[in-house]
Design a binder for these strands. Structure first.
Length: 152
DNA sequence: GCCAACGTTGGC
DNA sequence: GCCAACGTTGGC
């Protein structure tokens, strides 16, 4: 079992939105970064743990827990001409972007990024590195246990 | 709203 | 295949 941190803008899909969705499942659409796409396509497995992170908002930080609920499949929003995630270069016979389904498990207290940065045990978290812009990053087992055990 | 840092694009 | 310009991310 592996662990991931997945960013979402709460204006688009907050932990409350994800918990309110049918079967608490959210298709993680709209990722348009190759590295994050590859993470969903290759190493992610059903059942992996997910830190549900609110980004680009008034209170950025960890907002809940989730799990990977499906393998990867083509992201349908890449073919939607009218949607904001349309990719004219992606062909149906060779889709460029994929998604996985994420099942929201629970809302937690919000752990602000400043608090995460204050813990030495989390100093190596990829998402805390200056300039990091990946929307999906791996979380080590030790980091996962520290966060879920001590901070939530 | 600012802006640093990074990914992507495209001319050469 | 280099690299400058550009666009985007995302904390502050």
């Amino acid at each position: 079992m592996q662990f991931w941190l997945m960013k979402t803008e709460p204006d688009e899909c907050s932990i409350d939105d994800a918990l309110a969705a049918p079967r608490r499942i959210t298709p993680w659409s709209g990722v348009r970064n190759y590295q994050s796409r590859n993470t969903m396509r290759d190493p992610m497995r059903v059942g992996d743990g997910v830190l549900f992170y609110h980004s680009n908002c008034a209170e950025p930080g960890i907002a809940g827990l989730a799990e990977v609920a499906s393998g990867s499949r083509p992201d349908p929003t890449q073919f939607d001409r009218k949607g904001g995630y349309y990719d004219p270069q992606s062909k149906r016979e060779a889709p460029r972007w994929v998604l996985v389904d994420i099942r929201a498990l629970k809302k937690t207290r919000l752990v602000p990024i400043a608090e995460l940065k204050a813990h030495k045990a989390l100093a190596n978290m990829l998402t805390l590195r200056p300039g990091n812009r990946l929307s999906i990053t791996p979380v080590s087992g030790a980091e996962w246990r520290y966060i879920t055990g001590k901070l939530l």
